[in-house]
């Protein structure tokens, strides 16, 4: 029994005067306790929408999100029982309240969990910050420190599933892998699952047990990190990994994936990747591959 089960999730964005955008179009994913799942994909493929739907921040159009077997209800104004899912947002400059001391903000999380023994300073210590920072305000910190505070606040609520929505992309390059590893260590230490969303493949590879690759609202490949890295099967995963330049000093330009991501409001018929796929076949233009773990007609399960 996995901790989080996403089954055929569909999320649509509706805005007046515009066509309906199906940001997540039938994605299925599971996260077990103590497991780190990395969700990667190009910008605009629906990664963040998926994360927000899992937290109940976005209304779900179809499919289901179940946490511990219980469906996740949309977040409203009322007090919520479901505090087992906590999220760390992309931009720590926006996700922390600038007018409150960071200790107080972490204490909110502790109160949610009904924890009266832990002090906010203990959590600061866990994320590698000095204890006396609790009395300071967010503007006194650098981006990496703020993101650590945001992680401390999320952990204070004793989550059983931690979600990081591009938690490192707003940080300086040198702080990125540190913060990513910190998130992994803290989540695994406390036995929680971690859904880590990022477009930075090299960081995801460092921390994730499993990788899920998303393209235009669908998960196209899921597998163990080492396996996906060593032997990517979906042409999109291949292209994605092939595009990472290697620091080998050979001056090899990375392979380019032709074309842009299609408009999610008007996805291509058949397999969503077929206009850009180097191995496109006739069947790809007609039928959408809706099976796993590799959603590609070349890897159809027998």
């Amino acid at each position: 029994m996995s901790l989080l089960t996403i089954d055929d999730l569909v999320v649509e964005h509706r805005s007046p005067g515009r066509p309906v955008v199906r940001a997540v179009a039938g994605a299925s994913l599971a996260v077990a306790a103590g497991e780190v799942v990395g969700l990667v994909g190009e910008s605009g493929c629906g990664k963040s929408t998926l994360a927000r739907a899992v937290c109940g921040l976005n209304p779900v159009t179809g499919g289901s999100v179940a946490f511990d077997g219980q469906p996740v209800t949309p977040l409203g104004l009322r007090r919520r029982k479901l505090t087992g899912i906590q999220m760390v947002f992309q931009d720590p400059y926006a996700s922390l309240n600038p007018r409150r001391r960071v200790g107080d903000q972490i204490a909110d999380g502790l109160r949610t969990a009904g924890d009266t023994t832990t002090a906010p300073a203990d959590l600061l210590e866990r994320v590698g910050l000095p204890r006396d920072f609790a009395g300071r305000h967010p503007h006194e910190f650098s981006g990496g420190q703020r993101q650590r505070i945001a992680i401390a606040r999320a952990l204070a609520a004793r989550p059983r599933l931690l979600i990081g929505d591009e938690p490192i992309s707003a940080l300086d390059a040198s702080a990125q892998s540190q913060v990513a590893k910190l998130m992994r260590d803290l989540a695994v230490e406390s036995g929680a699952g971690l859904l880590f969303i990022s477009h930075d493949l090299s960081v995801v590879r460092l921390i994730a047990d499993r990788i899920a690759v998303m393209y235009l609202g669908r998960i196209v490949e899921v597998g163990r990190t080492a396996e996906v890295w060593a032997e990517p099967r979906h042409p999109y995963t291949k292209a994605l990994l092939g595009a990472i330049p290697k620091p080998d000093g050979m001056g090899v330009l990375p392979a380019e994936l032709p074309g842009d991501v299609p408009d999610p409001a008007n996805p291509p018929a058949g397999c969503r990747f077929h206009p850009r796929c180097p191995l496109v076949m006739d069947v790809c233009r007609e039928k959408e591959p809706d099976f796993g773990p590799v959603a590609c007609w070349l890897h159809e399960p027998k």
Binding site: S177, A226, A230, P232, K238, L241, G242, G251, V252
Partner: peptide
């Protein structure tokens, strides 16, 4: 002057044989 030659040899994705040796990378990083 090898700009053209470079683009010809750029299919590097298949050569990526090294698996995740993340333990060693972990300790040496940052």
């Amino acid at each position: 002057k090898s700009g053209t030659a470079k683009s010809g040899t750029a299919r590097s994705g298949t050569a990526r044989s090294g698996t995740a040796r993340s333990e060693t990378a972990n300790s040496g990083a940052a």
